[in-house]
C-alpha cells in the first residue's frame, strides 16, 4: 500500500487534512517578528560578503582597501551597512528570544507579544546607538 501524502485522495479515502497555513492565523506582532527572523537571517547570509570583502581587501593591500572604503563611504554603501547592522542586531535579539523559548519560558500571550516588541524596539534603538557611537568614533558625520 502506498504511503498517503497529506492532501491526496486514494481510492475511497477522503483527502487527508492539511495543517492550516499562514492565512488562518490572526496577525500578531510575534507572528510578524517570526517572519522577520527568517528574512533577516536570509539577508545576513549574503551580507556576510561585506565582512569577507572587508577582510580580503585589508589583506590584499592599500588599493583594494581604498576601493572597499570608497564603497562603504558612498550613500548606497552606508545604506547597505545600516541595513546589515539592523539585520544583524535584529537576528541576534530574535535569536535570544528563541533561546528563552527553548527554556520553556515566555509562551503566555502577553509574554510573547512583549518579547516581540522588545526585539523590535531593541534592534532599532541598538542600531541607532551603534551608528551614533560609530560616527562619534570617526569624529562626526562626513
Amino acid at each position: 500500500m502506498a504511503e498517503l501524502d497529506a492532501g491526496t485522495t486514494t481510492g475511497s479515502q477522503r483527502p487527508r487534512p492539511l495543517s492550516p497555513h499562514l492565512q488562518v492565523y490572526k496577525l500578531t506582532l510575534s507572528f510578524v517578528m517570526s517572519g522577520f527572523h527568517r528574512i533577516s537571517g536570509f539577508t545576513l547570509y549574503f551580507g556576510v560578503l561585506l565582512i569577507a570583502w572587508w577582510l580580503i581587501a585589508a589583506a590584499s593591500g592599500p588599493n583594494a582597501y581604498a576601493n572597499f572604503e570608497w564603497f562603504m563611504g558612498s550613500l548606497i554603501g552606508r545604506l547597505v551597512l545600516f541595513g546589515y547592522t539592523w539585520a544583524l542586531l535584529h537576528h541576534m535579539l530574535g535569536g535570544i528570544r528563541h533561546l528563552i523559548w527553548d527554556t520553556i519560558h515566555g509562551f503566555e500571550p502577553a509574554e510573547r507579544e512583549m518579547l516581540a516588541l522588545a526585539t523590535l524596539i531593541g534592534s532599532v534603538s541598538l542600531t541607532l546607538v551603534i551608528w551614533v557611537v560609530g560616527y562619534l568614533a570617526m569624529g562626526g558625520p562626513r
Binding site: I51, A58, G61, Y65, A66, L88, M92, I130, G134, A137
Partner: peptide, 26 residues
C-alpha cells in the same frame, strides 16, 4: 547562536575601533 552573541558584540567593538583608520593601522 549562543556562541554568536559575544562574538557579534566583539565584531561591533572591532569595527567601530577601526572606523576611519588608515590601511596600515587596520
Amino acid at each position: 547562536s549562543v556562541a554568536g552573541i559575544p562574538l557579534t558584540i566583539a565584531l561591533f567593538v572591532i569595527v567601530i575601533a577601526l572606523l576611519g583608520r588608515s590601511h596600515a593601522a587596520v
